[in-house]
Design a binder for these strands. Structure first.
Length: 261
DNA sequence: ATGGTTGCGAAGCAA
């Protein structure tokens, strides 16, 4: 019989500021695994106890001020590995991996890149290439594996509110889309996209100018899964309700139900 | 309106 693993990913834009919203959401939705990005916390400040009180184990990799990633799980959390163990770690605390319910889970916060002519953009491409190499070195496409997070790349033009507004900008440029494509070519599937063909389904909206209510967003938060998990996906959703109300993150959580044996 | 908002941290940077 096939079971499911409900995974979610959420860039919370400071877990310190967002913890009330995260606790409310987690206690309501109860995903098996939640990947967090931009906790902006040091490991010592991470609220392990609050997650434990909700029935979740957690692992965090943070530098205290920027970045910061975590995996929160109620189906086990083993074999935690933080960062790359290479010079890519100079880009900040942006990667953590753990095994949850038999699935190798990665929570990633890909560097923003800032602008196409920036050294930070070069670093973004290198980071994505390094992630692809890490997966290829440690795993097989036949392994049950997911990479969840804020990729800071909109996979194609359906994933931005107006492609003409993004010409010459990051998040949509051919080099970074190719770097994301290299991950997919290794053996990962964008499971939200496999459920929905429409454009206009976003996960991030700028705080400025009422972008959320104007529908001006991007889909940059992705759940990428290997075929054994992705072929059996039964459900995926952007929880737009989490972008509403008091003190929301500028990102909404993305959920997916993956098939596991 | 060379803007707008949020977070961190205490001014300006990053997103």
């Amino acid at each position: 019989m096939t079971e499911r693993l409900r995974v979610a990913t959420w860039n919370v834009n400071s877990l310190t500021a967002r913890m009330p919203r995260v606790e409310e959401w987690l206690s309501t939705v109860r995903p098996d695994v939640l990947c967090l990005q931009e906790t902006k916390q040091a490991d010592a400040a991470f609220p392990y106890g609050a997650f434990e009180a909700l029935g979740y184990e957690a692992a965090h990799h943070g530098d205290g001020r920027w970045n910061g990633v975590a995996i929160v799980s109620k189906v086990g959390l083993d074999g935690v590995v933080s960062g790359f163990g290479t010079e890519l770690d100079a880009e900040g605390t942006r990667l953590i991996a753990a095994t949850c319910g038999g699935v190798r889970v990665h929570s990633v916060y890909v560097p923003n890149g800032r602008s196409l002519d920036s050294e930070h953009f070069t670093a973004k491409l290198a980071w994505l290439a390094g992630l692809r190499d890490l997966l290829a070195d440690r795993h097989q496409p036949s392994d049950p594996l997911v990479v969840c997070g804020d990729f800071n790349v909109a996979p194609d033009d359906r994933d931005v509110w107006d492609p003409t507004q993004f010409e010459g900008m990051t998040h949509v440029s051919p080099p970074e889309r190719a770097a994301l494509g290299a991950l997919l070519d290794w053996g990962l599937v964008d499971v939200f996209r496999s459920c929905y063909g429409d454009g206009g389904l976003f996960s991030w909206w700028d705080y400025r100018g009422g972008s959320f209510h104007q529908g001006r967003g991007m889909r940059i938060d992705l759940v990428l899964a290997t075929r054994p998990l992705a072929d059996g996906v039964t459900f995926a959703l952007v929880d737009r309700n989490a972008r509403k109300g008091e003190k929301p993150s500028d990102h909404a959580p993305v959920l997916a139900d993956l098939a596991i044996d």
